[in-house]
Design a protein around this nucleic acid. Structure first.
Lengths: 387, 387
DNA sequence: AGGTTAATAAGTTAACTTAACAAACTAAAC
DNA sequence: GTTTAGTTTGTTAAGTTAACTTATTAACCT
């Protein structure tokens, strides 16, 4: 437990005041005082410091009421007072961007992961970052720090990637490597964890406190926010929905479609869909092609996809039963075609869960990872400003 | 967010000091100061208040080191400075007890629920409480308050039992009813939630922060502690493992064994096991009898139980995949015979989860509910002393 | 119509309270 | 004489209350 002293209180109250400004801008000192129940002199003092630090600016007068009285000075949050580098290291590409304190991505870069995996990946990343800084005419001093998401199990305390098959990393000290290239505070986490943080910050989960983000791509993974904070599990491997068993009989002689894959992934993941259809029609096809074939009326493709969706639906339904979330957000390759199988998923959920829960596709685009990585940074970084 | 002021700091630091004493008793002021990094004068002042309030007592001198120096005064926590009433309202019995601040149950009572369901249940409960107070020679002033667990979905903020089939309650304002009989602070929650709180306090989950308690009785339910705090879900219905689907094919034409029951309950719950075997052998038997028959070598019974265990194993395995807990604690009617099917469960978990997780039966006896209810009270009650 | 006054609200100043802390102290041991 | 426990004293940092200044509206008066 954190010990309390004067500095701790001040920091705490500064955060409260700043949060209030962010949520209700433009807002006057007097109204802040009323809302957060901190006395007027204290609010004034804290606001003065925020003005000095540049987090807040005054923006003319508000209007007084018909009953008279001095006009209030309106205060606004200055989201561009500092920037964060958000980085998403995925199996296929490394995306990076500069976001402001409200999660706006001001500029964005990406490069193919595989070309740089064992040679100068971090040097290449640094080049992108420098180019973005130049573009926005910023210097290192405008940066708060660096948030990074990685497609693999990540020990966030030690900053080590425990296992990332897509990147061929095992016990890889990523934080150390990054620190060698960037002289900034750095936080790292798993890719689905950062994405759910992003959704919580400015996405579909913005005003919710129990959120599940499920990414359905080659494999299936998920990130969990409960009671408003990220849940990582005891070994950084919470959310492994890909390992769910949805079919007792098939589970008996189950073999993963790819080494290390779980049961549900092997039934409903992208690789699995491709493999299943390939086997049926004796021709190598991808999941994407399977969806296209199914749309054209191909019976084999339709059956393979129906099978995947049924398993996926059960997996999601089980998730809802266990965690009673407010919302489930779907992402990954499949999310674009959600409308096509929405009905089936909803039917299964309706049939097998006690309550109900909204399931929607993500609305954050390719920048989701960058936004999430910034969200991670702001969550972990101990400063006045904290989301 | 809580606003900070001097009182808040003091309260916070008092809790830190008290926690330190509880964890390391007997301990001196000087050592507390070193451990929690609060200055000696402050520790002394806080300890003095704790001594005055009776939460702490001095217990002679410790020994000084060989290098010399004044002997320290040893401090101990006084668990019997206040008592809590813990109540567990289940479908078959209402159990109550008085616990001290360390979770020791000093006295215990119970009465059959059904006899008092629609007539004077609370009056009957009050009689038990009074008799316990008399036994321990305590008065109302020795009581901090009342924690209550109920076998049903409970809105803890409003103090309403949303739905409790076993008690035939629906939107029942239990807190209000209790307040009419007891002039004490009262907190209510679901029965599995309080049990997992109890396990976290003084049971198998004592030093853990991610704990799942699964109760397997007539139905199947669970309580969840994540990142050290109870997770209730968005609609107070997290942990409904009884609704998990573990068999895609059977799920297609699934009908609950009892109205309102979920899939897994209908495959592996106590009622289900009884029903399945009854149907097979054309004779009405209970789950308990099924287990006995199976022990005697009855093939039908064995198959029914194997089927239940297989489904249960998959359900637990799915739980582990999603939440990566440190420990799973089994309770309810089945927990006594856990040794018999431990192997099968462990096999399934080993096969289908990425990591591993200990699964053990509960060690708290019939008083588990009472302990849990007290734990609930202390968690929710805002005082110096808080677990 | 224009000026004056009372009421009201925003924000600041000054005096006070609380709690933590550092340094210096006393007490008690080896 | 040294070392450790615990207390006393005075200081500092933060928030609060109450009184104040500033700014505005509305009503009233000439």
């Amino acid at each position: 437990m954190q010990k309390g002293n004067a500095a701790y209180i001040k920091n705490m109250n500064t955060k409260i005041v700043l949060d209030c400004i962010i949520e209700h801008e433009p807002i006057s000192r007097a109204e802040i005082s009323k809302r957060v129940k901190i006395s007027k002199p204290t609010v004034s003092q804290l606001v003065n410091q925020l003005l000095l630090d540049g987090y807040v600016y005054e923006v003319g007068m508000g209007s007084s009421t018909t009953t008279g009285g001095r006009k209030p000075v309106q205060l606004c949050f200055n989201a561009r007072n500092a920037y964060i580098i958000g980085v998403d290291i995925g199996g296929s590409k490394v995306a990076s961007g500069l976001t402001d304190l409200k999660g706006n991505v001001h500029t964005y870069r990406e490069f193919p992961t595989q070309d740089f995996l064992n040679k100068d990946l971090f040097k290449r990343l640094k080049k992108d970052v420098q180019s973005m800084l130049d573009e926005l005419e910023l210097t290192n001093r405008d940066l708060l720090g660096l948030g990074v998401g990685i497609a693999g199990v990540t020990n966030v305390e030690k900053g080590i990637v425990v296992e990332a098959p897509a990147l061929e990393w095992e016990n890889f000290p990523i934080k150390e490597k990054l620190e060698a290239h960037f002289d900034l505070p750095i936080f790292v986490d798993n890719d689905v964890n950062i994405t759910v943080l992003g959704e919580h910050w400015i996405g579909a989960g913005e005003d919710k406190s129990n959120i599940i983000y499920i990414s359905i791509g080659t494999g299936i993974g998920s990130g969990i926010i409960l009671n408003g904070s990220l849940y990582r599990g005891s070994n950084y491997s919470a959310g492994e929905i890909g390992y769910q068993v949805t079919d007792r009989i098939r589970a008996r002689d189950f073999n993963p479609v790819v080494k290390g894959f779980g049961f549900l992934e092997s039934m409903a993941g992208g690789i699995s869909i491709g493999e299943q259809l390939s086997e049926r029609i004796n021709k190598k096809v991808t999941a994407k092609e399977a969806f296209e074939l199914s749309d054209k009326g191909d019976e084999d493709a339709r059956e393979v996809i129906d099978f995947a969706i049924e398993n996926l639906g059960i997996g999601i339904s089980n998730y809802i039963s266990l965690l009673d979330p407010e919302i489930i957000i779907l992402g990954g390759g499949i999310s674009g075609s959600y409308e096509r199988f929405k009905g089936k998923i909803q039917d299964i959920i309706g049939k097998f869960t006690p309550g109900k829960c909204k399931v929607i596709p993500t609305s954050l685009g390719k920048e989701a990872g960058v936004i999430g990585a910034s969200a991670l940074f702001l969550k972990e970084y101990d400063s006045i400003f904290k989301i």
